[in-house]
């Protein structure tokens, strides 16, 4: 079993996001928490695809004799980033409407639906 700082960072980011969603009562902070969570997942994909001494997998004017990092995680991360952007945009609009309706950003007061 071996630990790199990269892996610890990923897990730290994910746990931080979960912490924000579980403990913070402000809607904006929850949105920030989810963005942190997404960053953790994206970082995980990128870190898994790194190869020591590798260069970006692009042949245009690439340096000679170097290996290339794995390209698939980069494509996946590109997709995941756009999905994160979409989620964030929709979440912020919902927060605006919630603030309009309830006049507050505190989750403990936004609980018309219960029971």
């Amino acid at each position: 079993m071996f630990y790199d700082i990269h892996y610890v960072t990923i897990v730290f980011l994910i746990a931080l996001g979960i912490y924000a969603v579980m403990f913070q009562h402000n809607l904006i902070k929850i949105a920030i928490g989810i963005d942190i969570l997404e960053s953790g997942a994206n970082l995980l994909l990128i870190v898994l695809g790194y190869r020591n001494g590798g260069v970006a997998p692009i042949f245009t004017m690439a340096p000679q004799g170097k290996s290339m990092v794995l390209p698939t995680p980069q494509a996946l991360t590109l997709t995941a980033i756009v999905i994160g952007l979409a989620t964030t945009a929709l979440m912020l609009s919902l927060i605006v409407m919630l603030y309009r309706h309830y006049g507050t950003l505190d989750t403990r007061e936004i609980r018309r639906l219960r029971g």
Binding site: F2, A15, Y19, M22
Partner: peptide, 25 residues
């Protein structure tokens, strides 16, 4: 709640601990 976050942290870290070494897929 704190225990849940810490346990989640440790389990994910344990999982990544058995992943390949960084930079050597």
């Amino acid at each position: 709640k704190i225990a849940i976050v810490l346990l989640l942290f440790s389990f994910l870290l344990m999982g990544l601990g058995f992943m390949h070494k960084y930079g050597v897929p």
